[in-house]
Design a protein around this nucleic acid. Structure first.
Lengths: 152, 152
DNA sequence: CAAAATTAAATTGTGTACAATTCAATTTTT
DNA sequence: AAAAATTGAATTGTACACAATTTAATTTTG
């Protein structure tokens, strides 16, 4: 008695989601050798990108930007603080909120990070155009998912 | 004295990699309500997909397929074993290797999982064609990165 | 064939992710 | 204004990821 083979739609190689998951981890791995010298992990680098863009955000605002909650951000930010890259202090206007500010060292690190995107782009072997197209499709996808989380 | 603004290439919204990272986590979140009833996490679901496709792989072979190492797989597989979905035992031919086999319950779960891909596809709001195109681009990207990890 | 090298899992340690709860501060209601 | 509801971080607990080390088994070499 033969066993039914796996239907096509359950094959790993058919899964859009695995392709995404694998690509995401692959790329994080590609960042590692670039970020190690800066003393940053990839999620920490993302936090720094946001702060370089706009300093003095609260944990909540950082979370909105990066789609991460306080359970992830609080310990991550404490590590950035321990590394001397950010300061954390309660807002005077509202003591519930914690203000995250770059230190001088944190701001200075931006210069060192300045080459990272170019290095990555080279390693990715994608044209700028391909990269933008793919990026925008992914952004659209993410936006779509966040608008209608369970409906449809 | 004005501070230099962040150069464009360091803006979060410009980052291809953040788009990928955010999309990946978004989609994992979308799987959660579908997989919860099966008692699986998303990475556990991926392991099950591989085993449904080909039963009796070693930890190493599973790792190759999913790009995960034993540090991730060993505890994950122990949890699947604790859930009664797989058996783990040393190979007789080579006692270093651990053979992972579906239990009857593990095999039976495939029927329940059968609708998951269709549900996901619906929620993603992408045509089958768009999904395949995007998937194949991501696969190509991952393959590319694994071929030339640091060179170029 | 015994020592050295290699290999496969497991273990250890660090750092995310994220659900759920807690705690304190602020707003809203009554 | 006091009680109730809400909000923002932090905390707790579970589950990945992944580098690095350890352990045991097998191969390769001298």
């Amino acid at each position: 008695m033969k066993r039914k083979p796996t239907p096509d739609h359950l094959l790993l190689d058919q899964q859009f989601c695995f392709a995404l998951y694998a690509a995401s981890r692959s790329i994080t791995g590609l960042y590692r050798p670039l970020l190690d010298p800066l003393g940053l992990t990839y999620p920490q680098y993302l936090v720094m990108l946001v702060l370089w863009e706009q300093d003095g955000l609260t944990v909540r605002e950082l979370g909105q930007r990066l789609q991460l909650d306080s359970g992830t951000l609080t310990p991550l930010l404490k590590r950035l603080q321990a590394a001397g890259l950010v300061d954390r202090k309660r807002r005077i206007e509202d003591e519930r909120e914690v203000d995250i500010r770059l230190t001088a060292a944190g701001l200075a690190l931006r210069e060192q990070a300045s080459d990272v995107p170019k290095c990555m782009a080279q390693r990715l072997q994608l044209s700028l155009d391909q990269m933008q197209t793919l990026r925008d499709e992914l952004k659209r996808l993410t936006r779509q998912l966040q608008l209608s989380p369970t409906e449809d």
